[in-house]
Design a protein around this nucleic acid. Structure first.
Lengths: 339, 339
DNA sequence: TGAAATAATGTAAACGGTTACAGTAAACGG
DNA sequence: CCGTTTACTGTAACCGTTTACATTATTTCA
């Protein structure tokens, strides 16, 4: 039933068109002249026989796959829609295919990465699954990679595209302190060791310190940048008898912010009257949450697009090793107390 | 620079381990017995040399890719996050890879589908780019496919997974009519000819008729199931001097609902006091929109999961040709006027 | 105990393309 | 007008695996 149908090969086409396989190949790849007469005949035969070149054979012979890979920790965030969009648009325009795979640090024990030099021409890495050492050796072997929301290891000039985290977070937290008089700001981390999360935490800490507030480690929770995890984390925090007083929550991202809103709602805490809430990313729904979410606008689709373009740059021998940091800006809405 | 590094092949491993390539292959694929002594040696050599089998060569020789494809119209909707999640989880568990590609009806002119028998072992089809005739011939050739949110062509038993649209929409619209006394309900279509959209429209029409209301074609707009398109469509409608009176909007999906909310807000229309709004899908943010969105809960992640499992069923020769329709339910929130 | 099954391994032919090399005919250039 | 390029085509090696077939050694079992 599901046996592969013996499909038509380049040899069938060649025979039918009365030419050699090399000529057919040349016609397909347009990498050598073919007389118009022959071209027509081959084209006809190809359509008639519904010939489609077998990818594996091409890949093997040409040593390229025309596939690029996107490696993520997971897909548990609406954030990935704009990212994927940016990536996919470029990939499609180039006539390539896109493999989306997940791999994270704890996958590392059971298996090696699902994508890499063996099945792609290059990788967009947005994952902590590949450690710095992995990146180094891949890069040393000349494998094209672009890092997304991640900094290359020392002395390893892998191009990288990310967004500005620290300063904008600092400003946002200062806004909470200075404009809204908040003193006990809870920070909801993303995945431990994820760079955005670390940077946002750095911005958070430095804003507190710059304003003479001490950092209460009890006010830093793990939210994993996931709606459900954030919800649980807040629930646990709020349900805990010895909970610390707080008057604001800086959630690491918009998706987690939804979990936070949910939890706060359920505990009868009013936003922003009792507690301010802010996010990060400015996903499409952010202006329409209740209350509208104060957040940081991050050009995520652009990140995907630029990263992918740079990856193709590598494939086409236009190397570049810059670290591109796209600007972000705070969008003030009601959830912090503004308006 | 980006030249492929001459990587280590199965022959290198075989030589180093003092066995034949066949033995190495057998060890890798566990498809024939290998003495424990040899197995160990091969394993050692493989790790030491960091050998990773070359995918294209495997694919060519074995005539399978261990890749499945997901074909979408586009990625412009948060809806795809749960779908992708459901799909990816199963794909990963099976040790396969996932190619995500977009292709829609109007792509059809320039190019043929980016994924198919030539580069995948099977396809999840959620796209109008492959027409019924394409599906028929692919199916006839024995190529494994599962349709997602789409019904197979007549006499073509391709498995299909979707959600219940018509009845639930009918109930939802009747709710607007009977409970909230709405008489002029605007319907925002999805992509023309998209099945969910057609079904929802059918449910909409039959609810109106069943309640003695006539369908005003001026109250049916095209929203494409996209936030921005929906926004523009509503803007145009509202900005139009000869606009028809309306007291409710049934947007085809939650993402478009955001666009509708935005537009209505900007025109100073209050929800639900002036106009009720409802969505479809119950995406994660729906309960936290302002106002909380009355919508239809669709088990989208489950759809992805089941569809993918069925596709693997096909690959493993457990055919099935049912059309699975997962149940949906209305979630009443404030945007329709409830609560 | 001898025939038959099984375990473990090797040899070499695919798989379906690309491309280096070679050759012929026509066009070009001085 | 002849040597040199250029346009076009074919032959066949090669890409790195899998696997059918063959072979030998070892078990199994009536």
């Amino acid at each position: 039933m599901t046996k592969r149908s013996s499909s038509v090969t380049i040899r069938d086409v060649a025979r039918e068109a009365g030419v050699s396989v090399a000529t057919v190949s040349r016609f397909i790849n347009k990498n050598a002249p073919v007389s118009t007469e022959v071209a027509e005949r081959v084209q006809d035969v190809m359509s008639k026989m519904r010939y489609v070149p077998h990818a594996a054979a091409r890949n093997l012979a040409s040593r390229k796959t025309r596939v690029i890979g996107l490696l993520l920790n997971n897909l548990h965030n609406d954030f990935f829609v704009p990212l994927l969009n940016g990536v996919e648009a470029v990939v499609r325009k180039k006539g390539y295919n896109l493999i989306v795979a997940t791999y994270h640090a704890s996958s590392r024990d059971h298996m090696h990465p699902p994508i890499g030099p063996h099945n792609t021409d290059g990788l967009l890495v947005f994952s902590d699954g590949l450690m710095d050492e992995d990146l180094k050796s891949l890069h040393a072997s000349g494998f094209p990679m672009v890092l997304v929301h991640r900094t290359p290891p020392p002395h390893t000039p892998i191009p990288s595209v990310t967004v500005e985290n620290i300063e904008v977070t600092q400003k946002l937290v200062e806004h909470l302190i200075q404009v809204h008089g908040k003193r006990h700001i809870l920070f909801l981390r993303g995945p431990v060791n994820q760079e955005d999360s670390l940077r946002r935490e750095a911005g958070y800490r430095s804003a507190l310190q710059a304003n003479g507030l001490s950092v209460d480690e009890n006010l830093i929770l793990n939210g994993d940048f996931e709606r459900d995890v954030a919800y649980e984390a807040m629930n646990e925090f709020l349900g805990n008898g010895k909970r610390v007083a707080f008057d604001a929550v800086f959630t690491g991202d918009d998706d987690a912010a939804i979990g936070v809103l949910k939890s706060l709602h359920e505990f009868g805490i009013r936003i922003p009257e009792d507690v301010s809430v802010t996010g990060f990313d400015d996903l499409g729904f952010a202006p329409f949450l209740n209350p509208p979410l104060t957040t940081v606008r991050a050009p995520t689709e652009k990140v995907g697009q630029i990263a992918t373009e740079r990856l193709f740059g590598l494939l086409e021998n236009n190397p570049s090793d810059e670290i591109i940091i796209l600007p972000t800006e705070i969008i003030f809405r009601r959830s912090c107390g503004c308006q």
